[in-house]
């Protein structure tokens, strides 16, 4: 029996037998089904995944007609990170004309709403100039990033420190105060960008600081939608389930902590979010077949209940893509094809 070349979750190559590959695909979906209390992939879907991994080709793709919208988050920041010396506006022109971006997104290097607030006027001017020379729909993107509202970066007592001292009520109060401040900042910056002509606002990596972070994103989305009924809001997540750092925060009566993608999207819909971006973390110590099978199981459950478009996150270390700065095309193309076709996605 021949060996199949694939990769581990950290991107390094590994050879697997057919049985090992099938075993990892089955274990991945079972892990997701068990954690998310959702259906595992069917035999046919697992066979479909097996065939993709068993393909002798370096690069695979979706069938014609099954292509989806590709949105790039934080695009100019990625060129900066690569030390490519172009202005953000030029970067976005490169993305829409040369890199196949269906949407583009302007963001500040800090990529959080809070630090953008005091320089919002400068950001608006850049956005307005970008709109003059670009064609694709333009998002302004940033993270709610509740970590910036705790001491020493912000005004409120550090909940991690309080929790370690057993001061649970005080920690929770700190989170609750941070939510209120973050919502104000998100609404302020987003309103400015929308008033300047942005096509949409992307709240990226929501939930990075736990359930309070997710709540801030939802509340801000709700306020923005009431203020601007036509606004497009994309809400992207940070992890596969909402970390319960507060533990008791609710949105419209539902506890946010512990929610997986199929429940998160219902909250996003209630908040008036236009496009939802679920995340499933890749485990670097498991194989890519295990990770992809697992990720597809979570995302498929989310797509099945969603009434709004789903743009799944498939960057470094998420959505079955390995945790490495330069994910290889063999595994990224396999993840792309499989995720799009099995989940009936609307976008990436």
């Amino acid at each position: 029996m021949g060996k199949i070349m694939t990769r581990m979750g950290d991107g390094f190559p590994v050879e697997m037998s057919e049985n090992q590959l099938r075993g990892d695909l089955a274990a991945g979906t079972e892990d997701a089904a068990d954690r998310g209390k959702i259906s595992p992939l069917s035999k046919e879907e697992l066979q479909y995944l097996f065939d993709i991994f068993n393909s002798p080709y370096r690069f695979v793709s979706t069938e014609p007609g099954k292509e989806v919208v590709l949105s790039y988050d934080a695009a100019p920041i990625k060129l900066m990170r690569a030390a490519v010396n172009v202005h953000r506006i030029q970067s976005l022109q490169i993305h829409e004309k040369l890199l196949g971006a269906d949407t583009i997104e302007l963001g500040h290097i800090d990529y959080s709403f809070k630090p953008v607030k005091p320089i919002v006027g400068t950001e608006q001017t850049v956005l307005e100039q970008t709109l003059l020379v670009t064609h694709a729909p333009l998002f302004y993107g940033a993270m709610p990033n509740l970590g910036l509202y705790r001491q020493p970066d912000g005004p409120f007592p550090n909940p991690s420190e309080l929790m370690q001292l057993g001061k649970i009520d005080e920690a929770r109060q700190s989170y609750e105060m941070a939510v209120e401040d973050a919502v104000k900042d998100i609404v302020y910056v987003s309103s400015a960008m929308y008033d300047s002509g942005a096509d949409g606002i992307n709240m990226d990596t929501t939930g990075a600081a736990g359930d309070a972070d997710f709540l801030a994103g939802l509340k801000a989305a709700e306020i923005l939608k009431q203020k601007y009924p036509d606004i497009c809001i994309e809400l992207g997540m940070a992890g596969e389930f909402v970390l319960g750092l507060h533990g008791e925060l609710t949105y419209h009566g539902d506890r946010l902590a512990g929610m997986y993608a199929h429940d998160q999207v219902k909250m996003a819909e209630k908040a008036g979010v236009t496009i939802f971006g679920p995340v499933v973390n890749s485990k670097s110590s498991r194989s890519c077949p295990w990770n992809l099978s697992r990720a597809i199981t979570f995302i498929k459950a989310c797509c099945e209940v969603a009434n709004i478009p789903i743009h799944v996150n498939m960057g470094m270390g998420v959505g079955g893509v390995p945790m490495t700065a330069h994910p290889p095309v063999d595994i990224t193309s396999r993840a792309s094809k499989a995720m799009v076709e099995l989940c009936r996605l609307d976008g990436l």
């Binding site: 929770r172 736990g210 970390l243 319960g244 929610m259």
Partner: peptide, 17 residues
């Protein structure tokens, strides 16, 4: 259970006590 999103941080702290 915390790793699976079924128990939350404050619950862990109380259990620890």
């Amino acid at each position: 259970l915390f790793d699976r999103g079924e128990v939350f941080l404050p619950g862990l702290v109380v259990a620890s006590d």
